[in-house]
Design a binder for these strands. Structure first.
Lengths: 139, 139
DNA sequence: TTACCTTTGCAACATTGTTTCATTTGAATA
DNA sequence: TATTCAAATGAAACAATGTTGCAAAGGTAA
C-alpha cells in the first residue's frame, strides 16, 4: 500500500509532510530516528510540523514510537494488516536495539508474554526493549 | 544501609548532593522523577550536579533509570543486595507505570524471560515497561 | 470554484541535557 | 590536625528536544 492509500484508509488528510514521513519509513523498511527521516524528507521537513505529524500518524496507528532511551527515539511503520485497527500494534512485539550500530529492529516474532501483575493492577499496554548486538555487528 | 554507607561501599565520595538523592529515594521507597527528588533535596539541588550524580550513581549500580517515555523518566534505588554487584539490576525485573497517577513501581517478582532472538543477535540487557492502572487508581 | 476546516510554518517559549572552566570540597597522608 | 591533590561543584553558555498561539496556506467536499 502506498503512502497516499495509507492516509486515505485512515481518513487522514494527504499532505506533503505526512506522505514524506511514510515514504521514508517504507523505503528503509526499519524504524528511523527524526534525523534519519529528516534527511530523507529533504526540503519538506519542518520541525514543528514533523512533531505534529508524528502525533497524528501515531494516534492513527500508522506508525509507532520506540523509546530506546530518552534521547534515543525511533519511529516504525506498523504492518499493513493494522491499517484498520488503531490499537493492533499495542502489546504486539518486542524491539531490539543494537548498541553498536544503533539500529532498531522490530522483532515481530517475539510476543509480549502475559505477566502476572500484583492484585489490583491492570495492564493496558507494554513495551519490551532488548539491547545488545545485531547479527551484522556481532562477530 | 544509610546513604553514607551506600556510597562508602561503592567507593564513591560522600557529597551533599549524592546523599540527598539517595535519601530522597530511600524515604519514598519508590522510583521518583527529577522534580520529585529536587523537591526533597531542597537547597542542595543543582541541576547540572544532579545530572552528573545521577550518572555516577547509575554507573555504580546504586540507582537505575526507568524510561517510561522520552519525557517521563524515573530513578529507582537498587536493592541492598546489589551493593557489591554493579550489574545485578540488569535483566532483573519489570516496571509498571500507572497512566492515571503516573507513579512507577518496580515489579521485582516479574523477571524478564529469555527471548529467542533471531540468528546472530546477542542480548546484553532488556527492559520491560508495563503500562496500565495501579491498584489505587483501578476502581 | 467556492467554502470550510485542517494543516502548516513562524515566532517564541519551555524543558532537558551537555561542555568548559574556575572554585570548592572530600578524604588520604603526613 | 594540617596539608595536599584529585574529584566534585556550580555558573555560564550552548545544544537538542518539544510545545503553544496565530496568521496564512492547503486539502477536500459540496
Amino acid at each position: 500500500m502506498n503512502a497516499t492509500d495509507v492516509l486515505r484508509h485512515h481518513n487522514i488528510k494527504k499532505t506533503a509532510g505526512r506522505i514524506a514521513i511514510i515514504k521514508a519509513l517504507q523505503d528503509k523498511c526499519c524504524p528511523l530516528s527524526e534525523n534519519e527521516i529528516k534527511e530523507l524528507m529533504l526540503e519538506s521537513y519542518d520541525r514543528i510540523t514533523f512533531y505534529r505529524n508524528i502525533h497524528t500518524l501515531s494516534a492513527a496507528g500508522i506508525i509507532h514510537k520506540i523509546v530506546v532511551d530518552n534521547t534515543l527515539i525511533r519511529y516504525g511503520l506498523n504492518c499493513c494488516e493494522s491499517a484498520h485497527d488503531h490499537n493492533v500494534h499495542k502489546n504486539n512485539h518486542a524491539h531490539f536495539y543494537c548498541e553498536k550500530c544503533q539500529s532498531v529492529v522490530c522483532l515481530q516474532e517475539i510476543k509480549i508474554p502475559d505477566f502476572c501483575l500484583p492484585e489490583g493492577f491492570v495492564s493496558a499496554d507494554s513495551d519490551i526493549i532488548i539491547k545488545g548486538k545485531c547479527e551484522k555487528c556481532n562477530h
